[in-house]
């Protein structure tokens, strides 16, 4: 299960980045969000949102094993009811900030370049599948892909 995009719909409004930082850090800063949008203007005039597909490469390259896929929650602990700040959702690789040594290896190795370092913290910012961005994305770019379904 991971966040996926229909890039053709993206309008570049950055609401997803805004809510991501507000939800996770209680402040507003698109540069502290776990997704990003590339814009190619003036030609061909497209937006390319990039999001984490939970491929787990970050976990495999982490030298201190700070990134892991927590055990699958029980079905009644549905993802929407949870609190991302308490430690992630079904299908999300999560960084243990106690273990993380801030080496940045995961950020460098991320194939989609959607792990971010910000000067405020040594722990990278990574999508925890909180899904807060989905309903506020007006054009409907963001959705959950569940390959088991």
């Amino acid at each position: 299960m991971y966040l996926d995009v229909d890039a053709t719909k993206c309008t570049g409004c950055r609401v997803c980045l805004t809510i991501c930082s507000l939800y996770h850090f209680k402040e507003i800063n698109p540069k502290k969000a776990a997704l990003t949008i590339d814009a190619t203007f003036p030609k061909p005039g497209k937006y390319e949102p990039r999001v984490c597909n939970q491929c787990g490469i970050c976990a495999s390259v982490c030298p201190v094993e700070a990134i892991s896929l927590p055990a699958r929650p029980q079905p009644d602990q549905a993802v929407l009811a949870g609190d991302a700040r308490s430690g992630g959702k079904e299908g999300a690789y999560i960084i243990d900030s106690e273990k993380c040594n801030g080496c940045g290896e995961c950020v460098r190795e991320c194939p989609t370049q959607v792990m971010f370092l910000h000067e405020d913290s040594s722990v990278p910012i990574k999508c925890d599948l909180c899904k807060e961005c989905i309903p506020v994305c007006a054009p409907g770019v963001l959705f959950i892909k569940d390959e088991n379904k």
Partner: peptide, 16 residues
Amino acid sequence: VNNKACFGCPMACGKY
């Protein structure tokens, strides 16, 4: 070719 929004806009009135 595309709908283009200003920051934080749900209606994206910019038509590229």
